[in-house]
Design a protein around this nucleic acid. Structure first.
Length: 240
DNA sequence: ACCCAGGGTCATA
DNA sequence: TATGACCATGGG
């Protein structure tokens, strides 16, 4: 009895602190209360999640879905099929997800690596540190993509830092926003406590909130964090 | 017509 | 180590 049951209500269930500031755990509770379970990652099985993680790099998920549908229709959603596919042909399937030439190379590199390593089952035996290290050595897999894969395909307690995380928490005044990736990852993991189910849910909530509310141009009027956010813009009818 | 999207690599300085 | 160019489609 160490995991999930305990992780629920223990910590500073983080309302805004006396000074009106939110905390990293506090933001989670707000976002969860406002949005509920997100049941992530969209997609079936470890391999499809890994493919999605590469294809969604700097790309809207709706475009990724189309590319994955193309791969499925062509019966090409497997490491073997992708390794064997003609680069030109693979790129054509990936076209809707953008950067198709680059992503064709990256998917091939990932699938070659996957097969060399003996597949997902074999990789799942590695500890998180070693698995992360070997993932980062694959062409086209950087810190965020590696952590997406670790968290959502391998169920490891690794917190994913993405552009939404930086934007939201910078606006909240909880981070500067331009810290190195590892600095932010370590901070979130330390303040939240290592829990894969929590990290899974939290990152999903951050994405929804970043996409729908805390956009480039934020909709503070409908934000569940507005009362604790120093960047909140009050919509004023006239000038000011 | 423009801006944006769930990054990463590579070339410079 | 840090910044910039580049990759490319589809939706608002």
């Amino acid at each position: 009895m160490r995991g999930a049951a305990t992780a629920r209500k223990k910590r500073t269930v983080g309302r805004p602190k006396p000074d009106g500031h939110l905390t990293i755990p506090g933001v989670y509770h707000r976002l969860f209360a406002a949005n509920g379970h997100q049941h992530w990652w969209p997609g079936d099985g470890a391999f499809e999640i890994m493919v999605g993680a590469v294809l969604t790099q700097n790309t809207a998920w709706t475009n990724v879905e189309k590319a994955i549908a193309n791969l499925k229709r062509a019966k090409a959603l497997s490491p073997e099929a992708i390794v064997k596919a003609h680069p030109r042909r693979l790129a054509a399937w990936l076209r809707p997800s953008g950067y198709f030439n680059i992503k064709a190379k990256r998917l091939k590199a990932m699938c070659r690596w996957l097969m060399q390593q003996g597949g997902v089952r074999k990789l799942a035996k590695l500890n998180t540190h070693d698995l992360r290290h070997t993932l980062l050595n694959v062409h086209g897999i950087g810190p965020e993509t590696a952590d997406d894969i670790l968290l959502y395909a391998f169920n490891r307690p690794v917190f994913v830092i993405d552009a939404y995380t930086r934007r939201i928490f910078a606006r909240l005044g909880l981070i500067a926003g331009d810290e190195p990736y590892e600095t932010l990852r370590n901070r979130f993991e330390d303040e939240l406590g290592f829990s894969a189910p929590l990290f899974n849910e939290y990152h999903a909530l951050i994405v929804i909130h970043g996409k729908d509310v805390c956009k480039k141009r934020p909709l503070c009027g409908s934000c569940c964090l507005a009362d604790g956010c120093p960047s909140t813009v009050s919509r004023k009818p006239a000038g000011d």
